[in-house]
């Protein structure tokens, strides 16, 4: 298989480059490779779009908690503050 055909065929490699692109920088050569592949591969174009979106969604999950987020119960909190006060009084 010639090098161009390899690029066109290799979706595994293309998805790898997509992941690298999202986090780091691609080399010029890698950029060309990915561009050529995506030009001819609609399946990987779907992957490309979804992958970026998944990262965004995951980042959103970790963002500062919203009002409907998890809460500690009051008992636990009271005990916790007691522990802190105990420690403070030791000094």
């Amino acid at each position: 298989m010639g090098p161009l055909k390899k690029i066109i065929y290799n979706c595994r490699r293309a998805t790898f480059l997509i992941e690298k692109k999202l986090i780091d920088r691609l080399t010029l050569r890698e950029k060309m490779e990915l561009r050529i592949h995506l030009f001819g591969c609609s399946v990987c174009r779907v992957f490309d779009k979804q992958s970026a979106l998944i990262n965004k969604m995951v980042q959103q999950l970790f963002k500062a908690p919203k009002d409907d987020g998890a809460h500690l119960d009051d008992n636990f909190k009271q005990e916790l503050q007691h522990r802190i006060e105990d420690e403070l009084n030791k000094n």
Binding site: L61, F62, A64, P65, G69, A70, H71, L72, K77, Q78, L80, Q81, I84, E85, L88, N91
Partner: peptide, 28 residues
């Protein structure tokens, strides 16, 4: 001695416990 002007441990639970808990649970 505690730098009480900078930190206020008496209010830690009120001010930060829920935030820290939510931060932790979303990650572990």
């Amino acid at each position: 001695m505690l730098a009480t002007s900078l930190l206020n441990p008496h209010k830690w639970v009120d001010n930060h416990a829920d935030y820290l808990y939510a931060y932790a649970i979303s990650r572990i």
